[in-house]
């Protein structure tokens, strides 16, 4: 067992874990943060995307021990009193149906806007290439992200602020 200490959505966690424990399983089963789901086992679907020290990572592709000392933001820590603009835009633009990809999609979108606050439509599509959705055909997801980019013009969007 190895000791890990990390801050998840603003709360500090200290645990002894097996080194093979995946960060996503640590989040879901040790820390009880089940807002981040698992959709595949090959790093393709992106459902488990969270922010680690401010940038997007696939939490199935990080060992919990590798996140020792890190600051993690999940979909459950994104809202700050009120919904994050991306949460609002996903809702209002109908950018989700079953919602399984949504936590990862929103976190990936947050990172995308941090990296490129004024993306073109193609840049949004390319920036979300690591997140699969089976319901929406992505059209409204792209629309929601572009809308937030417009709203937050000039600002640094998304990161764990």
């Amino acid at each position: 067992m190895n000791h890990v200490s990390m801050r998840i959505d603003g709360v500090r966690y200290d645990d002894d874990v097996e080194p093979r424990l995946l960060l996503v399983h640590y989040l879901r089963e040790v820390a009880g943060r089940t807002g981040t789901p698992v959709g595949c086992d090959t790093s393709n679907c992106g459902a488990c995307t969270v922010l680690m020290n401010g940038v997007s990572v696939k939490s199935c592709s990080v060992l919990a021990v590798q996140a020792d000392g890190a600051e993690i933001t999940t979909i459950q820590g994104l809202a700050n009193g009120e919904w994050h603009p991306l949460q609002r835009a996903f809702h209002e633009e109908h950018a989700l149906q079953c919602g399984y990809c949504t936590p990862g999609m929103i976190m990936a979108a947050a990172d995308l806007l941090r990296d490129n606050p004024r993306p073109s439509e193609q840049e949004v599509r390319d920036g979300l290439e690591g997140n699969l959705c089976r319901c929406t055909g992505y059209q409204n997801i792209v629309r929601a992200v572009l809308r937030v980019a417009g709203e937050m013009a000039g600002e640094q969007a998304g990161a764990a602020s």
Binding site: S43, G46, S56, V57, K58, S61, A108, E129, G130, N131
Partner: peptide, 9 residues
Amino acid sequence: IADPAVRHR
């Protein structure tokens, strides 16, 4: 290469 989240790691 890959996608942004993978590129970060």
